[in-house]
Simulated assay, not measured.
Amino acid sequence: MFSNFALGIFEESIDKYHIQDRVDQPFENPYPVNDVAHLLYKKNWIDTVQWHFEDLIRDPGIDPKEALVLKRKIDASNQERTDLVEYIDSYFLDKYKTVSISEGAQINTESPAWALDRLSILALKIYHMREEAERSDASEDHQVACQHKLKILLEQRKDLSIAIDQLLEDIANGKKYMKVYKQMKMYNDEELNPVLRGRK
């Protein structure tokens, strides 16, 4: 199942990041460039670094200048994340390009890659919720509450994985079809963001 394949790569990326647990550590992709695993690993690495950017920027004592630099990094990370999702969807578009679409086939509310984006974030939530549930310096109430949340997240992962695999199977059988729209983010574009355009 593709969801298990992707989840294994996401968890590998998360574990690798947390060896050093630094947002500025060098990135090395262990998978060949022409392999979808390369895209999945890079996608999750971006998500993992951004997760920790988001932690850092919420520090109430952060220096405003540092916060602005960090906000710019988060913006760039968001753009890179979106680009990776579109590259992954391009992989699926190419993979299923010869499938004959059945009469009455329907489009899904989200593309396979955006569903995998949610699975990547969910893998991060599970990793960090498990950390909280097992924290030796936390209160018993905290651990119990986090164990409950972890159980829900694991159930969500199971349901989402089933949904992803079912979507891919339906696309492969022509019961559903893909139609990908570029995100067309406007705030990073000097021609579309009036504030940036005014500074040209």
Results as ranks from 00 to 15, higher is better:
residue 147 Q to P: 00
residue 142 H to I: 10
residue 142 H to Y: 14
residue 107 I to S: 13
residue 112 P to M: 07
residue 152 I to V: 14
residue 163 A to R: 02
residue 107 I to W: 01
residue 148 H to M: 07
residue 133 A to R: 01
residue 121 I to E: 09
residue 111 S to W: 01
residue 107 I to P: 00
residue 152 I to A: 12
residue 119 L to C: 05
residue 132 E to G: 11
residue 110 E to S: 14
residue 104 G to P: 06
residue 131 E to L: 12
residue 104 G to F: 09
residue 153 L to P: 01
residue 162 I to V: 15
residue 140 E to T: 13
residue 111 S to A: 12
residue 129 M to Y: 11
residue 155 E to S: 14
residue 108 N to Y: 12
residue 137 D to V: 10
residue 161 S to H: 05
residue 149 K to D: 08
residue 158 K to G: 01
residue 103 E to F: 11
residue 114 W to L: 12
residue 153 L to T: 02
residue 144 V to F: 09
residue 108 N to I: 00
residue 136 S to F: 10
residue 121 I to N: 10
residue 159 D to G: 03
residue 134 E to N: 13
residue 104 G to D: 10
residue 105 A to S: 13
residue 120 S to C: 06
residue 106 Q to L: 15
residue 160 L to H: 07
residue 136 S to G: 02
residue 160 L to Y: 07
residue 128 H to L: 08
residue 145 A to H: 06
residue 163 A to M: 07
residue 138 A to T: 04
residue 136 S to R: 13
residue 126 I to W: 01
residue 109 T to L: 11
residue 125 K to Q: 12
residue 131 E to M: 11
residue 151 K to R: 08
residue 132 E to T: 06
residue 117 D to I: 00
residue 117 D to Q: 10
residue 121 I to A: 12
residue 156 Q to T: 15
residue 131 E to G: 08
residue 131 E to K: 15
residue 137 D to T: 15
residue 161 S to D: 06
residue 147 Q to W: 00
residue 122 L to V: 07
residue 111 S to Y: 01
residue 135 R to T: 06
residue 126 I to N: 02
residue 158 K to A: 15
residue 156 Q to A: 11
residue 138 A to V: 05
residue 147 Q to M: 10
residue 152 I to F: 04
residue 146 C to K: 04
residue 113 A to S: 15
residue 160 L to D: 06
residue 109 T to F: 09
residue 107 I to Y: 07
residue 117 D to R: 05
residue 143 Q to E: 05
residue 126 I to D: 01
residue 148 H to E: 12
residue 144 V to S: 06
residue 155 E to A: 10
residue 123 A to C: 15
residue 110 E to I: 13
residue 155 E to T: 12
residue 125 K to S: 08
residue 154 L to N: 12
residue 121 I to V: 14
residue 133 A to N: 02
residue 113 A to T: 07
residue 159 D to K: 13
residue 150 L to C: 06
residue 127 Y to H: 15
residue 149 K to Q: 13
residue 156 Q to D: 12
residue 129 M to K: 14
residue 123 A to D: 02
residue 137 D to N: 15
residue 105 A to M: 08
residue 147 Q to H: 07
residue 112 P to R: 04
residue 155 E to F: 08
residue 163 A to T: 06
residue 112 P to F: 03
residue 103 E to N: 14
residue 112 P to N: 10
residue 123 A to Q: 02
residue 105 A to C: 09
residue 134 E to T: 10
residue 120 S to L: 02
residue 122 L to F: 07
residue 142 H to V: 13
residue 145 A to W: 01
residue 132 E to Y: 07
residue 110 E to Y: 11
residue 126 I to K: 01
residue 162 I to Y: 14
residue 149 K to L: 09
residue 147 Q to K: 14
residue 158 K to D: 15
residue 102 S to D: 13
residue 116 L to P: 02
residue 133 A to K: 02
residue 134 E to L: 14
residue 124 L to R: 07
residue 103 E to P: 03
residue 126 I to R: 00
residue 136 S to I: 15
residue 108 N to L: 07
residue 103 E to Q: 14
residue 104 G to L: 09
residue 116 L to H: 05
residue 157 R to V: 05
residue 163 A to W: 02
residue 109 T to A: 08
residue 150 L to K: 02
residue 113 A to Q: 05
residue 160 L to A: 09
residue 151 K to L: 06
residue 123 A to W: 01
residue 160 L to F: 09
residue 139 S to C: 06
residue 105 A to G: 09
residue 102 S to I: 05
residue 146 C to I: 00
residue 121 I to G: 03
residue 127 Y to N: 05
residue 123 A to L: 03
residue 139 S to F: 06
residue 111 S to H: 04
residue 148 H to R: 11
